[in-house]
Simulated scan of single mutants.
Amino acid sequence: MSRFQTTRWSLIAAAAHETPAHARPALEQLCRAYRPPVLAYIRRSGHAAIDAEDLAQAFFLRFLERGWYTDADPRRGRFRNLLLASLRHFLVDEHAREVAAKRGGGAAHDDADAVQLQADEETPEQAFDRAWLGTVLARAMARLQREWMMAGKQSQFAKLAPLLVERPDRDAVGKVADASGQRGNTVSVQVHRMRKRLRQLVRLELMQTVGDREALEEELQQLRVVLEAGA
C-alpha cells in the first residue's frame, strides 16, 4: 500500500462519499493545525483582529458541518487549495450577508486597522501562503525538537536550532562550538544532519495535506516560491 493512501488528507477524501463521521476527526486535526493561514487571509482581507477570530471560528464550523470537503479528490487536489477556495466562498457569502444587513438598517462598521491592512501590498492569498509555509515549518521543527528531547539532547537542540532556518555563517557556528566545547567542524556536521532531517519532516508534514507524490512535489515547489519571495 502506498504511504500516501494512509495520510489524513487521503482518508478525508475517501470518506467524503461515505459518512462525515469517518472524515471529521482527521479533518478537525488539519483545521486546528492550519488555523493560522485562515486567520492571515481574513486579516489581510481587511478584517480587524477580533472579527477575524470570530470569522475563522465560523468558517471552520461551516466547513465541517456542511461537508465542504465532499468534493475532495486527492488525485488532483491539495488541502491547502481546498481550504483557500472554501474560505473565499465563505467570505463572499459573509460580505453579502453584511451588505444585506446594512441595507436593512444595520450600522456600518468602520475599522481603521482594517483599512490599513487593505492598503498593504501583500494580497490575502500571499498572506495565506506565507502563513501556511510558516505553519508547515513550525510543525516540522516541533517534531524535530521532540525527537531530540526523546534522545535526551534538549539543551543541544536549543543551541543548534537557531542555525537551522538560514545557512549559518562561520562566526555563528564558532560561537556554538565554543559554548558547547566542540570543534567547529563537528557543529557544522550536526547542523547539516539536522537540516536534512528537518527537510524530511517538512515532507512528512505536507504528506498529510496532499494525495500523491506528484502533488507533494508540486506543493513543495510552490512553497519554495513563497519562501524565496519572502527572503
Rank of each mutant, 00 (worst) to 15 (best):
F4I: 10
Q5H: 08
T6F: 14
R8E: 01
R8C: 00
S10W: 15
I12T: 06
H17C: 10
H17N: 06
P20K: 12
A23Q: 08
P25R: 12
E28P: 00
C31D: 03
Y34Q: 03
Y34M: 03
V38C: 13
R44C: 09
R44N: 11
G46S: 10
H47E: 09
A48L: 01
L55Q: 05
A56V: 14
Q57F: 02
Q57W: 02
A58D: 14
A58M: 09
L61E: 13
L64K: 11
L64C: 10
L83N: 01
L83S: 07
S86D: 06
H89W: 02
L91H: 02
D93R: 15
E94H: 04
A100L: 14
G104P: 00
A108T: 14
D110T: 08
A114K: 11
Q118K: 14
D120A: 15
Q126S: 10
A131N: 06
G134V: 02
R139H: 11
L144I: 07
Q145V: 01
E147T: 01
M149S: 01
M149V: 08
M150N: 07
Q156F: 01
A158V: 10
K159G: 00
K159D: 07
L160Q: 03
A161T: 02
P162T: 11
V165T: 11
R170I: 11
D171L: 15
D171W: 07
D178K: 15
Q182V: 04
V187F: 07
V191L: 12
V191Q: 04
R195D: 01
Q200Y: 09
L201H: 06
L201Q: 08
M207W: 03
V225E: 13
V226K: 07
E228R: 15
